[in-house]
């Protein structure tokens, strides 16, 4: 066999190696995307809820959760003399 002639067995090996690498990269990308989407799925509703509560929405839930905390900074700013503080 002349080593100078075209040897498609070698090209076959290169092709298969590339294919398997591509498959693995694709699988890697798919698993990365699915783990990202899982994270979004888990935390996005919570994030929106936080956003809603920060903008003053979500009254129903707040009522269920109990009375608002008047010692918080926001409560103090709205009402300088909170019920917990004695009048001057």
């Amino acid at each position: 066999m002349s080593r100078d002639t075209r040897n498609n067995f070698k090209r076959l090996s290169d092709d298969e190696e590339l294919e398997s690498r591509d498959d693995k990269e694709l699988q890697g990308s798919i698993s990365f995307i699915s783990s990202i989407s899982r994270v979004i799925e888990l935390y996005l509703p919570g994030f929106f809820q936080l956003l809603i509560s920060l903008t003053g929405g979500g009254d129903e839930k707040d009522k269920k959760a109990g009375p608002p905390n008047h010692n918080s900074g926001l409560a103090k700013r709205d009402n300088e003399h909170g019920p917990s503080e004695p009048p001057a």
């Binding site: 066999m1 002349s2 002639t5 075209r6 040897n7 498609n8 067995f9 090209r11 076959l12 092709d15 298969e16």
Partner: peptide, 17 residues
């Protein structure tokens, strides 16, 4: 002859194998 196999086009060679 060796060249008869070595020169088969890659996709065909894959199928033959």
């Amino acid at each position: 002859e060796d060249h008869e196999l070595l020169e088969i086009e890659v996709s065909r060679l894959k199928r033959v194998m």
